[in-house]
Every structure is written in C-alpha cells, then in structure tokens.
Design a protein around this nucleic acid. Sequence first.
DNA 1: GCATTAACCACAG
DNA 2: CTGTGGTTAATGC
Length: 211
Amino acid sequence: MFNLNDKELDILCKNSTEIIFQKGEKIIKQGAFTQNIVFVKKGVVKIHLRGSIQKDEILKIEKGPVFVGVPDVFANNTHTYSITALEETKACFIEYAGFEYLIENNGKFALEIIKDLSLATVKHYAFYVNKTQKQLTALFADALIYFADIIYKSDSFSLPLTRSELGEYIGTTRETVTKIIHDFSVDKIITVNGKKISLLNRNIIKKISGA
DNA sequence: GCATTAACCACAG
DNA sequence: CTGTGGTTAATGC
C-alpha cells in the first residue's frame, strides 16, 4: 500500500498506536499542535472547521484507508481544522519524523502523497465553485451520490450525519435540509426512514445535481 | 407584481 | 434532534 515495503511500513507504524474512535469522538481538534499524521485504517470521518464567527462547516467526508491531517502538518504549527469520527473508526497516529523520512527516501511514496494532495486540491476547487453556484437541491443531490458511490458503495445507506451536520456539509440550515429531504421523498426520488436513505432514481438525482 | 429560493424564528414532538 | 409553518429578503421573470 502506498508503495511501501515491509520495512518502510514498519517505519511508519512502529511508534504508532492504533486507536479505535467511537462515533462522535474527535481525532484531531482544531487549534491543537501538529505532531502527527493520522492514518485512518477503517471508518468514516468528517473534516470540519469552525469559522471565526461561530459556525462549523464540514469540508469533507472521508473513508479509510486514508491519510488525514497531512496539509496541516506540513503547513502549520497547529491544526486549522478538526477531524471527528462519524462511525467507529480505526486510526493510527504517525510521527511526523517517520513520515518525513519516507518522503525524503521513497520517491514513489512521495509521489503517491503528492497525487493525493493534488487530487484533494482539485476536488476542492470544484466543490467550492459548486457550493457557491449551485442551488441547495443540487448540492443535496451531489451529497446523495457521494454517499452512495464513494462512501457506502450502495444505494441504501444509513447516514452518519444529523440533519444539522448535513446542513453544515452543503452549506445550509437544518430546516432547509429537512425540507429538501421531504420534497425528495414526496417526489419518490428517495425513501427515508430517519437516517436510513435509499436512492430510488439515480437518473433524476443526477439531473438535479446538474453534473 | 408574482413566483421561487432559502434563511430565521418559534413551537412541538 | 427533527419536522412544520409563518415570515422575510433577494432574485428573476
């Protein structure tokens, strides 16, 4: 994985303890000193940032296996965002020194990391523009497709987010999320039972998303 | 004007 | 935490 041989994996993992986080537990807190890269082995996490005024915004939802917190470790002394488990998550904390050693000594690994970071940047450009230009129904449709295709690989899933968090993700209020879900449900685009959602008509959802 | 979109508020399960 | 309804503001015919 990530172009690492056994010895190198050992460098990454030898001083790292595997920890299991329960849903809702914070893996990295905004403002904390950056000492570790976090390797999420398994589970779903949200990357979120509290704005200078008050509100939390969810920047990204990721599923293991994935490295998180990399940009902050290279760019800052403190974490500029938080990472919280959305379901039971296995993760290990990797010392920066070991990570840096691998970057310096394994070009293929470094390339993988660069690709990851680049992909993340490019995706964020798109997400940013979408968020400011699309209507909320389209953003919600995007979120549905994302959960179905990327996170759960199924058209039926149990959302790990509250309505309020869903709002923080697509940039609206919990009330508006409730209304959109209600509308989609009435129009037979999805079925909803609390947090359980099933996509009934992907074509329409794609159309609404405008992608 | 009128319709649509979405925020904010209040109240109720 | 969630659903609903009323109100209000902005935007677009």
